[in-house]
Design a binder for these strands. Structure first.
Length: 602
RNA sequence: GCCCCCGUAGCUCAGUGGAUAGAGCACUGGCCUCCGGAGCCAGAAGCGUAGGUUCGAUUCCUACCGGGGGUACCA
């Protein structure tokens, strides 16, 4: 639970005083936990300690609340503490608190939304997301993980942690040979079977590879073909040796060494294309981790050996199993097949071991691994956590948020996508059609737990069906006013000269209160890995600004009026100008953390 | 069969045990001599069903109903 008092010295002081009052009243010592009342009329902050202490103290909550208030020394900026309802204690902040807030926001800029953590609480976090197989371009569904993982990473950084964004590239194994084989077959004009990848992108890759390497790439077996599933496996005769083909896969019509070499090149080409797709969505990865390096470096063998030495494995029918069931998995999992080849799962084990070694002990708050997965992979969660347990990684340090899937629609009708038939709508096609901000925002404003219906027809409308425009419009509107004000000689640097105590209109107070929430919202969104918190907050803040705009003018209309009146309106205008400046900053911060543009003009 | 997610206003969705459950869209009625009407104000409308835990449940637990996804010596 993010705590308001972590982000605000005034609230920290209040929380400490409440706690002292609880103790002074002879009540059981407890965390006061400040909360925001739902109704603004109840006050700015509230505590429910009295309700929670009722049982242990064996007294009615309202009586406890009274004792609390009797012993409470209110800080100067808290103007009142009242008992309400069943035993809430509500606090109201002095206007000066909000005046200071405007100054702080304007002065601190981007830092306002961010938390500085002491080293002992600062975690080193690895966020892995997307990690789609590099055997085809990303489709729209991957966009959800891209936008969400990226925003979660951004939020964690804002919350004070050190974050790495990582993509695990499945560039090893049978699928890569098959991918290479598909490219070779297309390049040489031969027939594909049902097990091959198809689609225009295969032909594109074939053409690119031909241009770069010539025809012999597809026809001449290399002397040094890469191994795709572990050079150390018993069956493989090392680099250049033949690859075993699974009996249940249609026999390739292509020399395995050619397929392997083409597969590796094709996968790198596809990975590059995926990277470009992600960049188009504004998502940048720090690490592209190759599964193949785990095979080549012997990391998989070492991991299996380590687990075996630790007594975590056993052999049945010639296959090596890992005891994951005792750690909550449905059943034990095969690490090494009876023919000696390691499974994909074995690579997963080596991977998590490698990743943990990179985050463990890097900062005082400890390491953390986050795997953002789609609901179609939810079956992995138990085994992933079990592997972590087998490897001695603390269970609470491996997190696997599961996101529900995306349905692509057009006017309510499902858009059919079949990878096999090569019919798919790629992520970049959607981004081109509807725009990067709309795409990102559509994914970020909904909870991971709910399935998203992404309707191209709806999302391309520039209307309130698209709340991102509402927020961006508010930002553009503020920018426009500020431009006009600047022309009339307002100065952003003169915040000290503005009399902010003049801001007492309900719409102004509402805006001040809303702006005060950003640091807490960011902290909570980060903690819950819930991007929609921040998106909804941005919408709320935008609405608050629109109301302020409607009711409160910054630039006084030119009319005949007394000199006194003119002076009053000018002073008020200056105060409002700085309020708008701060609101713009907060709105830009919120959008920025979601990595959605905050335009000066729409 | 077992596992995960969802069911909140006519529609799309927020709401991590608290006070009177919120937005947008759609609908009805208002607001432009003046900083961007992609805006503002007002109205009507809701927690799938049945139990349980709790001072307090949309939130936690159980069962049921309805929808989505998963359940390989594949990768």
């Amino acid at each position: 639970m993010a705590r308001p008092d972590m982000h605000d010295p005034v609230l920290a002081d209040l929380a400490a005083r409440i706690r002292a009052a609880v103790v002074a009243a002879g009540l059981p010592d407890t965390d006061p936990a400040l909360e925001r009342p739902k109704q603004a009329e109840h006050g700015d902050w509230a505590t429910t300690v009295a309700l929670r202490l009722a049982k242990p103290a064996k007294q009615p909550p309202r009586e406890i609340a009274q004792q609390l208030i009797d012993h409470l020394e209110l800080p100067e900026v808290v103007t009142e503490a009242t008992i309400a309802g069943p035993g809430f204690v509500n606090f109201r902040l002095a206007h000066r608190y909000h005046e200071d807030l405007v100054q702080r926001i304007v002065e601190e800029g981007l830092r306002y939304a961010r938390t500085e953590l002491p080293d002992e609480r600062r975690e080193t976090v690895n966020v892995e997301f997307v990690s789609a197989n590099p055997t085809g371009p990303l489709h729209i569904g991957a966009g959800r993980w891209a936008a969400t993982g990226d925003a979660i990473a951004e939020l964690l950084e804002a919350a004070g942690h050190a974050v790495t964004r990582e993509y695990y590239v499945n560039d090893a194994g049978e699928q890569i040979r098959r991918f290479g084989e598909s490219v070779v077959l297309v390049a040489t004009g031969r027939q594909l079977t049902e097990d091959h990848y198809r689609g225009d992108y295969i032909a594109d890759i074939a053409a690119d590879l031909r241009a770069e390497h010539g025809d012999e790439l597809f026809t001449r077996a290399p002397g040094d073909a890469p191994t795709l599933d572990g050079g150390g496996a018993a069956h493989a005769s090392g680099p250049g040796g033949p690859l075993t083909e699974d009996a249940d896969v249609a026999p390739g019509q292509v020399d395995a060494a050619i397929s392997a070499r083409v597969g590796v090149l094709a996968v790198e080409a596809m990975r590059q294309r995926i990277e470009d797709q992600l960049l188009e969505l504004g998502v940048h990865f720090d690490v592209w981790f190759s599964e193949r390096t785990l095979h080549d470096s012997g990391a998989i063998e070492r991991t299996v050996a380590e687990l075996t030495a630790d007594g975590q494995t056993y052999e049945t029918d010639g296959a090596v199993f890992l005891r994951t069931e005792v750690h909550g998995d449905d059943k034990d999992r095969v690490l090494v097949r009876s023919d000696g080849r390691p499974t994909y799962f074995a690579a997963d084990c080596a991977y998590i071991r490698d990743k943990w070694a990179r985050v463990d002990g890097q900062s005082g708050g400890g390491g953390r691994l986050i795997y953002l997965l789609g609901a179609d992979h939810h079956g992995y969660v138990a085994r992933l956590k079990a592997v972590a347990a087998c490897l001695g990684i603390p269970g609470d340090r491996v997190e696997v948020p599961i996101g529900q899937l995306v349905n692509l629609l057009r006017e309510g009708q499902p858009v059919r996508m079949s990878k096999r038939a090569g019919e798919l709508i790629t992520l970049d096609e959607v981004v081109d059609e509807v725009g990067v901000d709309v795409t990102r925002y559509a994914f970020l404003r909904q909870s991971l737990d709910s399935t998203i219906d992404f309707d191209l027809a709806v999302v391309t409308q520039q209307s309130m069906e698209n709340p991102v425009y509402y927020v961006q419009y508010a930002h553009a509107r503020i920018s426009s006013i500020l431009r006009a004000a600047d022309e009339r000689g307002f100065d952003a640097d003169e915040v000290d000269d503005a009399d902010l105590s003049l801001l007492d209109h309900p719409a102004e107070l509402e805006l001040l209160t809303a702006m005060a929430q950003l640091p807490l919202v960011v902290a909570e969104a980060a903690e819950l890995r819930a991007t929609q918190r921040l998106a909804r907050y941005a919408e709320e803040l935008a609405g608050t600004f629109h109301r302020f705009y409607t009711e409160c003018r910054i630039l006084a209309p030119e009319e005949d009026r007394t000199p006194e009146e003119t002076a009053r309106l000018e002073a008020l205008g200056r105060a409002r100008y700085h309020l708008a400046l701060a609101a713009k900053q907060v709105l830009a911060d919120a959008l920025g953390l979601l990595r959605v543009a905050a335009p000066e003009r729409l």
